[in-house]
Design a protein around this nucleic acid. Structure first.
Length: 214
DNA sequence: CCATGATCATTA
DNA sequence: TAATGATCATGG
């Protein structure tokens, strides 16, 4: 099995800066939306391929190496602004109760992130362009991390005191607990699927990461 | 079946 | 435009 280190992945990805990701997706036989369906995750999938990952590492088991993320950027007054928040990892209520920030998946993913900025061209954007690839190494002593930890602890406390359903996307300065899941109705049971949540990086955090990487 | 990839829709 | 909640396709 081939090991792709972070620096190898970054070098691989950098070759594609400025390229149209849709063409690359087509070449790699990744479904985008041509089938009439809406695959929202295709950009992430193609980036994983381009990084050199032959198999899918969508979930870093436990040893984990690094995390690849992409975010859409939108141009406002000549500046690039993160259009969306960035999903970090799922929240497992039990785990969140029992886990310290620095032991959490959230931190483990955040600290070894490879961050891809993709230009967004509107709804159903079909020609996303890779504009930047950066990696980031957080330190446990960074002020930013301390504040993120504060958010994590806040959300954790709320979970413990008020329960999972009390969580909302309003919480947190840098990270938030948004709903995330398959959604809709389960065609088999015709019942609502359970609501799940995940940690998201707010746009200001995304912006911060983008700036820190210069 | 559910976690992961992330965007879409709606409201203010 | 920004913020929050809801949703979709895919792969293991």
């Amino acid at each position: 099995m081939k090991i792709i280190t972070r620096s190898v992945a970054i070098n691989n990805l950098k070759k594609y800066i400025g390229k149209n990701l849709r063409e690359l997706a087509l070449k790699n036989k990744i479904t985008t939306y041509e089938t009439g369906k809406q695959n929202k995750g295709w950009k992430g999938l193609i980036l994983e391929r381009l990084a050199g990952l032959e198999t899918n590492i969508s979930k870093a088991p436990n040893g984990l190496s690094w995390e690849l993320k992409s975010v859409s950027f939108y141009e406002v007054k000549g500046k690039l602004i993160p259009k969306e928040t960035m999903a970090i990892t799922m929240i497992n209520p039990k785990e969140l109760k029992e886990t310290e920030f620095f032991d959490s998946h959230c931190w483990n993913k955040l600290k070894a992130i490879i961050f891809c900025a993709v230009k967004w061209h509107g709804k159903n954007s079909n020609d996303g362009q890779l504009i930047k690839v950066v990696s980031l190494d957080f330190s446990e002593n960074d002020d930013l991390i301390k504040e993120i930890k504060t958010d994590y602890d806040f959300i954790r406390n709320k979970l413990i005191k008020k329960g999972f359903s009390a969580l909302t996307g309003k919480d947190g300065k840098w990270i938030q607990a948004r709903t995330k899941g398959t959604g809709g109705i389960n065609p088999k049971t015709e019942k609502r699927r359970p609501i799940t949540r995940a940690f998201y990086a707010r746009t200001i955090l995304v912006k911060k990461i983008f700036e820190l990487s210069k």
